[in-house]
């Protein structure tokens, strides 16, 4: 009531026709989807499937690839690289700020190096990793791990820094020891921050794996993309791209699901705010 905005009329109108408006919105979105596919189809007809694979052709090849297992095999390589790198990078990154919580001087010493590592173009290290670890899975895992590490480190650090000193004092007054404090106060408080980092790092992990494969590999979706491009097989490239995008979407979704289960105690408004941002 106390604001300049509160326009009851417009608010009411929106709420009043909510069901109708939602239907119309869904209809509009469906229409846009149809238009997008039509444009894609038109482009592939104008330029030919040689340059732009048609939507139908991509769908057929995609299902073929899935049924024959070829696509699944390459997807599993990429996925494996991304997951392994993600875990190798994220676990120490999340743990480090906890271990250093009571050692602010060490954290301070590390700070400029971490900021530098965070800002440095890690993907530029790809050739180096290929040199060190060969064109196999190890070089991709290393690239993903180092990319994920810095992102998660800073989110975990933010989580530790957001710690409410009063809560710690309260727990100590009630007789909690250092371990209890870490387990019951610090960790739960930092979890949302860590998840923010994981959510940001997730697409980077898959992107990192694919990029390393693009540069030098003999399997994986990035290799499939590169192979398709070299053979002027745009349909093949599209199929691989669709697969990569699917992984990213599924990855996002699973991080969100895990987060929601772990963070049931948070007020829902908070969650909404964050996903809306």
């Amino acid at each position: 009531m106390a604001t300049l905005e509160g326009s009851p009329d417009s608010n009411g109108a929106i709420r009043g026709g909510r069901a109708g408006a939602l239907m119309r919105e869904r209809g509009d979105q469906l229409l846009v989807l149809v238009v997008l596919i039509a444009i894609w189809q038109a482009l592939s007809m104008i330029y030919g499937v040689y340059w732009i694979g048609s939507p139908w052709g991509v769908l057929v090849r995609f299902s073929e690839g899935v049924l024959k297992g070829e696509l699944l095999r390459h997807t599993s390589y990429t996925l494996w690289e991304a997951v392994a790198g993600f875990i190798i990078g994220a676990v120490p990154a999340a743990a480090l700020p906890f271990l250093l919580r009571r050692r602010p001087i060490i954290t301070a010493i590390l700070d400029p190096f971490m900021v530098g590592g965070y800002g440095a173009p890690k993907l530029a290290l790809a050739p180096l990793f290929v040199l060190w670890f060969g064109i196999g899975i190890e070089s991709k895992v290393a690239l993903v791990a180092i990319t994920v590490f810095f992102i998660v480190y800073f989110s975990a650090l933010a989580g530790i820094r957001s710690l409410d000193a009063k809560l710690v004092q309260m727990a100590q007054v009630m007789g909690a020891n250092e371990r209890d404090v870490a387990r019951h106060i610090v960790f739960p408080g930092a979890v949302p921050y860590i998840f923010t980092g994981l959510r940001i790092a997730m697409p980077y992990s898959i992107g990192g794996a694919v990029i390393a494969e693009l540069i030098s590999a003999n399997r994986g979706l990035g290799y499939l993309i590169q192979l398709g491009a070299m053979n002027f097989d745009t349909t093949g490239v599209f199929v691989a791209l669709v697969a990569v995008t699917c992984i990213v979407i599924v990855g996002n979704w699973s991080v969100n699901v895990v987060e929601r289960r772990l963070l049931r105690w948070r007020p829902p408004a908070d969650l909404k705010l964050e996903t809306g941002a």
């Binding site: 009851p8 009329d9 608010n11 009411g12 109108a13 009043g16 026709g17």
Partner: peptide, 8 residues
């Protein structure tokens, strides 16, 4: 006069 808009 002022009233909130009618809801369906």
């Amino acid at each position: 006069s002022k009233r909130f808009a009618q809801r369906a």
